[in-house]
Design a protein around this nucleic acid. Sequence first.
RNA 1: GCCCCGGUAUUCCAACCGGCAGAGAAGAUCGGCUCAAAACCGAUACAGUGUGGGUUCGAAUCCCACCCGGGGCACCA
Length: 838
Amino acid sequence: MSEQVERTQVDSVDTDREATYDVMATQDRWQQVWEDLAPFVAHDDSPREKRYALTMFPYPSGDLHMGHAEVTALHDVIARYWWQKGYEVLNPMGWDSFGLPAENAAIKNDTHPATYTYANIETQFESFKKYGLSFDWTRRLHTSDPEYYRWTQWLFLKLREQGLAYRKNSPVNWCPNDQTVLANEQVVDGACERCGAEVTKRELTQWYFRTTAYAQELLDCLDDLQENWSDKVVNAQRNWIGRSEGAHVDFVIEGRAEPVTVYTTRPDTIFGTTFMVVAVDAPLAEELVTDERRTEFETYREEIRRETEIERLSTDRPKTGVDLGVTATNPVTGAQIPVWATDYVLADYGTGAVMGVPGGDQRDWQFATQMGLPIVRTTEPPADFEGEAFHGEGPTINSPAAGVDAPLDINGLPVDEAKSTTISYLQDAGLGRGTVNFRLRDWLLSRQRYWGAPIPIIHCPVDGEVPVPEDQLPVVLPDLRGADLKPKGVSPLGAATDWVNVACPTCGGPAKRDTDTMDTFVDSSWYFLRYLSPNDDTRAFDPALAEKWGPCDLYIGGDEHAVLHLLYARFFTKAMRDMGLISWDEPFSAYLSQGKVINNGRKMSKSLGNGINLGDQLAEFGVDAVRLTLVFASPPEDNIDWADVSPAGSAKFLQRAWRLSGDVASEPGADPAAGDVALRKVTHRTLHDGAALVESYRFNVLVARIMELVNATRKAIDSGCGPADPAVREATEAVSIMLSLVAPYTAEEMWHRLGHEPTVARAGWPVVDEALLVEDSVVAVVQVQGKVKARLDVSPDVSEADLEAAALADPAIVKALEGKTVRKVIVRAPKLVNIVAG
RNA sequence: GCCCCGGUAUUCCAACCGGCAGAGAAGAUCGGCUCAAAACCGAUACAGUGUGGGUUCGAAUCCCACCCGGGGCACCA
């Protein structure tokens, strides 16, 4: 070979090295190619093993932001990995497009909520495509489409048939600003979760889903989910469901046939019950109050109703209440005790009535002190106890008190035994029974707003509640816009007279439509099933497809939905299973919660002026660098502080990786077996470990390992085996494939420069050569008293005896042991020897 | 108050079943390249793992107590 030719080759390599990677041009080129290739369409009839990857679909408010960028970047790592590993991957995306912001925007701009909604959806759709995600866009859906909410309404009717949707009158949370009721879950610290206004109570007839019917199962299944769900979320759900064990105890009321049942978790303290308290807003209080006390009671009740939740929840305020004028009989002591109404007892928890045990409950203590009621301790506190009520462990006392003749004696028993003994006694005597209670309430789903799925019920004066016949679904929203949507005391649908008045489907007489819409969490409780056949106009979803694709193998989203959305979707799944629509118990086999993107230690907000605009970041650093930054910054669950990370550093790394593809001097298909073994070992180790890292969601470490391989390849090219070695090609191809999970544009460009056809996303994860994972020699550490004194190069399969001998023969060890007696030698071949000497 | 999770170089983060505290990155300093700067290449420095005990031949890792931070529940009887 002439010198001339050699120099030309070198020159061309050098030119390539100097060339810079045109990020923006690359993005434009490959986006178009991918659109034509459609490599991520999931085929229902594929023989390959399925994987269902799901990310929480966005609400269409404006364009995508950093939060969307993070969750989808993380999600895409898994989805793309599954494709590379040979699975058929279902990875759909859509929009949760009903909701209040669109309605508020419509009022402000005098338009229809759909205008705002669908314009934003298009904006976000274009941004998603630019962002290079592996979504199957053929399955796109919007919950605000009549074709979608038709099936939301259908499911509502199915649930109603099962008795899982019902209407009841009760005090509910009311947001005076949004002019709508709120679910318990949407009230945070007494304020509306959405707008922050102080929530008040209103007595209204509303629709509920009977989530409590599944309370125990929702709790039990968490044990299995625990393995593949974030601890945080499992814990939050457990707390939310709030199971407690206790007893129902019946108290006979003077002059009343029916006893009043109370719920208590401490039946062992029953001897200390010196009064009874019922919730002031419970119907029971109204029933019990004597005529002499009625006026006083009603005044008090009005006072309480006017209070906001915030006032009611403040814990250190004085206890209030009214004596109802009746007495109850303590079932074990026979004592006559007064019955009071108060606001510190909740109407909708337990039975709405409580036995007042001031000696064992701080709230009762405060109440008793304030009202001058007697206090009896029933658990002996430790000698140094300085508090008021005592609810800890200790022997039971005064149960009964000295000299009192009672049918039950639990004195001296520890709390646990005292409880079970009391429950057995109550059960035998027909005075009560052991029971379980949940904090979880039924899900209030009615909303007095417009932009949601109308509840498909017609109210007929003759036939009552009549479901809209299935063949008349969907009940389409009337065309309202602008001022029609303003809160005015009656809901927008209620004011749409033409729409409201209909013929009763049963008798044909005049009737009215239900004027509420459903909470948007209903829409998102089943969308993962609609993705299976989003255009099927004959049914909500195909059970056969649910069988094939479900449940979701991984769901990624934010913790803000840890209790609401996830719990509701779990409830829907169980209900649908019991209706025979699906066979699985849980919708999401694994759940990964992603952290937030913050800036400078604070949440991004307009008022702080610390917002990071996604579009600006993409324009400055390119899609891949932003995605890489988000994936590399921290473990997925942790928050990312944008001030701590370096998208410029990511861009730099991508350049480094890209440059490798220009340096490779062997032809495509070059046999790597002939290549440099040292580099091949790094490549195969990285492929092997990389797969495990993805599967355990340690994406940040995966990136670090790819960086390591890039560094090793760079070194091999510059000062090792050189660019023509086939191991360099093998390594660079591996980088391209692994990088395709995080930085698809760069990976595709590299793949192309390596002489391959698109798309690298479907190239397949290279098969790892096990032989290359074995090390020729490893470093064994020799410690004396736990301190490292020598290192030995040994074979990985060295015997313990040989290793020990080698260690004791090492000059440094001999020196360290001078004048000492070896007492014990611990050998862990091939890694370590520890010599204990003295 | 109860329940979860976390605390490792200046910073973000690694460290498998207890076995050399450092994989990767940011920033810093120095050097090479350059008329110069950026980019690029190379080198260097920086922690004994929140605190105090315990178990162990050996602890970032396991146990106990406490401190700090994040999250959930909370007048739920």
